[in-house]
Amino acid sequence: MISLIAALAVDRVIGMENAMPWNLPADLAWFKRNTLNKPVIMGRHTWESIGRPLPGRKNIILSSQPGTDDRVTWVKSVDEAIAACGDVPEIMVIGGGRVYEQFLPKAQKLYLTHIDAEVEGDTHFPDYEPDDWESVFSEFHDADAQNSHSYCFEILERR
């Protein structure tokens, strides 16, 4: 099963200049909980913004210009990325925008964090048809001392 995991502000903004323009430790914990011990696929820009392999996960970098870091697996196509994951129950696609666009048609599940923030962004989550998805989990949280904005975790499964 292919799943996408993303944090989205208003207007589906997911990033600005290779960074997330908010401070939500709870979302980072949600991300870790849902990706640990699963292969993660990301684009080169996302890889560069993280700066290191995510521990406890097979890191697969999709790029037309593969790098030389041998701590991760470099691939040039969506099919190659899927094959590099091996026989696993769930593959997690973690961004960025172009990689989400490439995998959305193949995805069966979306793990979304909806952030109540209007922020400037240069990267967006692809538009998706809500009628194609069923919400199977939703959990709202107010902003607090650690988390700069209110947010809602949601899991959607393709109908």
Rank of each mutant, 00 (worst) to 15 (best):
S148F: 01
V88E: 10
L156Y: 15
Q146C: 12
R98Y: 15
D122L: 00
V13G: 01
S3F: 01
N147C: 05
H45D: 03
H149P: 13
K76E: 15
P89R: 07
Q108P: 00
E101I: 05
D11M: 05
Q65Y: 13
D144P: 02
M20S: 00
E129L: 10
A143E: 08
K32C: 04
N23L: 08
F140Q: 10
P55Y: 13
V72T: 10
W30S: 14
E48C: 15
D70P: 15
T73L: 13
I115Q: 01
R98I: 02
P55G: 12
V88Y: 13
V75A: 07
N147R: 03
G56Q: 09
R44L: 04
R71T: 13
E120R: 14
K76W: 12
P25K: 04
D70K: 13
N23W: 06
G121Q: 00
S77V: 08
W133P: 01
V136R: 11
E134H: 10
I5S: 00
L8A: 04
R52S: 15
D131Y: 13
P39A: 15
A6G: 07
A6V: 14
Q108S: 10
H45C: 05
S49D: 05
S3M: 00
I94Q: 01
V72C: 14
A145Q: 09
I155R: 04
E101W: 08
E157I: 08
P39C: 11
E48V: 15
K38L: 08
T73Q: 15
L36G: 10
P66K: 13
H124F: 04
N37H: 08
G97W: 00
M20Q: 00
V72M: 13
V119W: 06
Q65K: 11
P55H: 14
H141V: 06
Y100C: 02
V75K: 09
D144F: 03
W74D: 00
E139H: 08
V13I: 11
R159Y: 09
Q65D: 12
E157H: 07
L8P: 00
S77D: 15
I94P: 04
A84C: 11
G51W: 08
L54A: 00
I94V: 08
P66F: 15
G97I: 00
I91A: 15
M92W: 05
D142Y: 10
R71Y: 07
S135Y: 12
P89L: 10
N18T: 12
E17V: 01
D122G: 01
V93N: 00
P66L: 13
A6L: 04
D70A: 12
N37D: 07
H149C: 06
D132L: 11
A29N: 01
P105R: 09
A84P: 01
I5G: 01
K106M: 06
D79L: 07
D87M: 09
P89E: 09
I41S: 02
H141R: 06
